[in-house]
């Protein structure tokens, strides 16, 4: 599903965010990307959805090298995956419901159907009462849940979640990961960046540890290593 071949990512003028990353993630995996702040977690995800391009090396997603893909190809790729941004990126002028159903809108699905599916999704994340609110009126944690719901509504093949629980308390964190695990067990490949070590330990799933842009370790079962 995802293949990084000796990827180096430099941000001009001289910041090296990723430094020779080699990873392979198969379809149907659930993978954590862990590491301290500034380790390069977000950069890794951005390379996968084509927001940034590798300075050297290759990033292949769903069988296509992103360096050779044109804008239309990248747009199509983005429509087929779900992304939870670290800073949520909700449309501030659109209601919570409209935000959650945005991916469906881009697929040209009619309003009535979008509404129905969107309400069901909001039910799932416990925000159905805020359907008509605008995102700025929501708490940070609520916005984060909306961002997760938006990334999942269209049954993406791949879910990229950048710090999906950064703003949530323990209980909400569990609820969100329940959702991610549910998506995973329904067949979605999940890649989640986090520095929440306790959830990594608890779920005990494959974890790639980054440090200063380098892969420090790739653990199939991190709890056993402890």
């Amino acid at each position: 599903m995802i293949h990084f071949r000796n990827v180096i990512k430099r941000y001009p003028p001289k910041e090296v965010a990723l430094d020779g990353v080699d990873i392979r993630i198969a379809e149907g995996e659930f993978v954590f990307v862990a590491g301290a702040s500034g380790a390069g977690k977000s950069t890794l995800l951005r390379l996968i959805y084509g927001k940034e391009r590798a300075s050297t090396g290759e990033v292949v997603v769903a069988g296509r090298n992103l360096a050779t893909g044109d804008a239309a190809h990248i747009a199509a790729l983005r429509r087929s995956i779900g992304i939870v941004f670290q800073d949520y990126r909700l449309l501030t002028r659109r209601s919570v419901l409209e935000n959650v159903t945005l991916a469906l809108e881009l697929q040209g699905i009619p309003m009535a159907v979008r509404r129905r599916l969107g309400m069901e999704m909001l039910e799932l994340i416990g925000l159905s009462e805020r359907a008509d609110a605008l995102p700025p009126a929501l708490s940070g944690g609520e916005q984060q849940r909306v961002a997760v719901a938006r990334a999942l509504i269209h049954r993406p093949k791949l879910l990229l979640a950048d710090e999906p629980t950064g703003n949530l308390d323990v209980k909400m964190t569990k609820a969100i990961f329940d959702l991610l695990l549910a998506a995973h067990s329904a067949g979605v490949t999940v890649l989640a960046a986090t520095h929440n070590l306790s959830i990594i330990e608890e779920l005990n799933l494959r974890t790639i540890v980054l440090d200063k842009g380098k892969v420090l370790g790739d653990f199939a079962r991190p709890s056993r290593v402890e």
Partner: peptide, 12 residues
């Protein structure tokens, strides 16, 4: 959750 999600996706 998975049941809920798959039912939702089933409709889509």
């Amino acid at each position: 959750m998975r049941n809920a999600l798959t039912s939702l996706w089933g409709q889509s």
